[in-house]
Design a protein around this nucleic acid. Structure first.
Length: 631
RNA sequence: GCCGGCGUAGCUCAGGGGUAGAGCAACUGAUUCGUAAUCAGUAGGUCGCGGGUUCAAAUCCCAUCGCCGGCUCCA
């Protein structure tokens, strides 16, 4: 029933001794731009003429069709031994034509792809004009070939169509929006006073209208470069970044922290492949539920896609496991390093949205709805703890299928209380996706845009789809429910949120500062002159944190300025006074200067590192020996 | 992906059909310095890449890549 939504391409290929055409008049869909791309009259000899017509469809499939048409055409050109192609729009191949816009785009794209091949010459006839033509077909067995190209397999096509129907339905259907306060009171968004929760109001507006007002780049982009953390890599696909030592250190710390929380929580770490067989029956079904955003990889004759999450890898393990009700809840965890999503180029935005990213992915099998709810609450707590560790503020959005919400009022109240802040609830009348409940922690950035970080979801679909079972008390096989959780969201996105938080601080006239445990350089030691080298070395040895040493031949004012610009939490100055008094002059981010002994300083720092991971300085300790990555 | 803007030294940017510019950073020297920029000097550029127009192109035109913004999207 959805097949008429699918974009097909009909092509007729003729190997000709000679082919010529001439424009004779405009059709109703003529466009002037066509005559700039293709001449009104031309001829070719010893060529392969490609007549083509695009059928009714959905432009989401253009990529796939272009790819297949190109492949077919090049393959036949190769077989008949010609490198001269004529691309000729020929509406008469179909009675259900696509829109002219899509047709022209297809033509353009096909020509572009063909021209990428070395040695191939392409002659293109204009779209939207009546043309006369003459052709001398060679008449050998391969000289005439007609094909209908559909995007991938027809099953995929119908599933895609189904998905796009679901997405459309979701858009047209009004969601109901409610605010729930930590004490469990529910009010409509209209009746809720957002005065004390401006960010929750921003989240709601963002969700409801999707409009953006910004004309600026997100400030974290400048910061990620200036702080020598992360940078664009022009030599890679867009959305794939390079990480400098300081950024890589922060990322590693964040990863270690998140993984530690999840493993303590009972997640069993696994590692799964990053690429999967496109034709695997279960995976291809799963893929088809979503718009095509995969990296596809050709290995010999086979096609693979790069994972966009760790879900399948874990499903495939769970499918093969022997699990009884005694083992539930059963939690598999992977720090998905990496997940790949080939987002449209215009959707990429610094560290907020990437094509290659790292995310913690926890999948919990539970025996029944009660256990699902119990785990959901525990994992929500864990996500809150995680956000606190990163010192990130966030707003809560909870989405439910209405039936689920109606049957689980008490659970929803507990969830609201657990979040200890007003939360936005969205109710759907029908289930569009695999989940019946989804919790999100959204970060509101310096430009008032929202980005989802932590998420917990109850999946009611995939254990059946992937035939994941457990044996219950009676010895019978059952499909468990499944919880998806990413307690921090993508690590890259956590970095974005941390940097945007600093940008917000700066815009308020405050000083930016990383959480101490994440600061790439935690302390900097500045000697008043090189005479104090020995005293400095003694201090360096006694500090068990990431401390470095500004031994460059520049003035102290300059050194202080440099250290401040790097947001270093503690700046230690050491000169004659300090040596005489056996102490340090300590400058902190608030601008205060204090005289402290090393012992006092370490005692002050210690609580800030509690239960947080530590990694050594990944750079030369002396600034005189440290290269510059950016600037 | 579509529409728009941008791309000049390591960084931030000015310039604009006729010898390629500044500040910062780097390097050399002087200075040995007390809390956000010491002084002087040196070096550094196929003006994103590819075509075209022109006696002459960084500058104008076309195409392409990248970044940013808007739309769309965000499993």
């Amino acid at each position: 029933m959805f097949f008429n939504q699918v974009l097909n391409m009909r092509i007729l290929l003729i190997h000709a001794d000679r082919f010529s055409f001439r424009v004779t008049g405009e059709t109703s869909v003529a466009m002037a731009s066509e005559l700039q791309k293709a001449s009104p009259e031309s001829e070719a000899t010893e060529c392969l003429v490609v007549f083509m017509a695009a059928e009714k469809g959905d432009e989401a499939d253009v990529d796939s069709v272009v790819k297949q048409v190109t492949k077919e055409v090049l393959s036949l050109a190769d077989q008949v031994g010609t490198s001269h192609l004529v691309v000729y729009p020929y509406a008469h191949l179909s009675s259900r034509l696509s829109s002219p816009r899509v047709a022209v785009r297809l033509l353009d794209e096909i020509c572009r792809q063909l021209l990428r091949q070395r040695r191939i010459k392409v002659l293109r006839a204009p779209f939207g004009y009546y043309k006369s033509f003459e052709i001398a077909c060679k008449g050998h067995p391969l000289s005439e070939l007609a094909k209908t190209i559909t995007p991938e397999k027809s099953t995929k096509a119908s599933a895609d169509a189904e998905e796009s129907e679901a997405l459309k339905a979701e858009k047209t259907l009004e969601s109901e929006w409610i605010i729930i306060t930590p004490d469990g009171k529910q009010v409509s968004v209209e009746d809720f006073s957002f005065a004390t929760r401006p960010n929750l109001e921003r989240l709601f507006r963002y969700e409801k209208s999707g409009t953006r007002v910004s004309d600026q780049a997100p400030p974290h982009i400048e910061l990620m470069r200036r702080m020598e953390l992360v940078d664009y890599e022009p030599g890679a696909d867009p959305g794939n970044f390079r990480w400098y030592p300081k950024g890589q250190l922060m990322k590693r710390l964040a990863e270690t922290y998140v993984s530690g929380l999840v493993i303590d929580h009972g997640g069993m770490p696994v590692e799964t492949p990053i690429m999967y067989d496109y034709q695997h029956p279960k995976l291809s079904l799963y893929l088809q539920r979503f718009p095509a955003r995969q990296y596809v990889l050709l290995s010999g004759e086979k096609e693979y896609f790069l994972r966009f999450a760790a879900c399948f890898g874990q499903y495939l393990i769970q499918h093969d496991m022997q699990i009884s009700y005694n083992h539930l809840p059963c939690k598999l965890y992977e720090l998905t390093h990496y997940a790949f999503r080939r987002e449209q180029s215009g959707e990429l935005a610094g560290l907020k949205r990437l094509r290659t990213f790292t995310m913690p992915d926890l999948h919990t099998l539970v025996k029944d709805a009660d256990q699902a709810k119990e785990e959901f609450l525990r994992q929500t707590d864990l996500a809150i703890q995680c956000m606190e560790g990163f010192e990130l503020d966030f707003e809560v959005a909870i989405r439910f299928v209405r039936d689920f919400a109606d049957q689980n009022r008490q659970f929803i109240e507990k969830l609201a209380s657990c979040c200890s802040r007003p939360a936005l609830i969205e109710l759907w009348d029908e289930r569009f996706f695999y989940f019946v409940a989804k919790l999100e922690f959204n970060f509101i950035d310096a430009l008032d845009k929202a980005a989802c970080l932590s998420t917990v979801q109850i999946d009611v679909e995939n254990t059946e789809r992937f035939d994941i079972t457990f044996v219950d008390k009676k010895g019978e096989k059952q499909h468990p429910l499944l919880l998806h959780a990413s307690i921090s969201g993508s690590i890259d996105r956590v970095m974005y949120a941390i940097l945007e938080t600093q940008a917000i601080r700066i815009s308020k006239g405050e000083k930016a500062t990383f959480p101490f445990w994440l600061a790439p350089i935690q302390l900097r030691l500045i000697p008043v002159s090189e005479k104090f080298d020995v005293a400095c070395k003694q201090v360096l040895e006694k500090v068990p944190y990431r401390i470095d040493y500004d031994d460059r031949d520049i003035t102290m004012g300059r050194k202080i300025r440099n250290a401040e610009r790097e947001w270093i939490p503690y700046i230690l100055v050491l000169g004659a006074k300090e040596v005489a008094e056996q102490c340090l002059n300590v400058r902190t981010r608030d601008g205060a200067q204090r005289k402290m002994t090393l012992h006092e300083l370490l005692a002050e720092i210690e609580p800030q590192t509690k239960e947080k991971p530590f990694l050594d300085l990944p750079l030369p300790q002396s600034l005189s020996r440290r290269p510059i990555f950016v600037g």
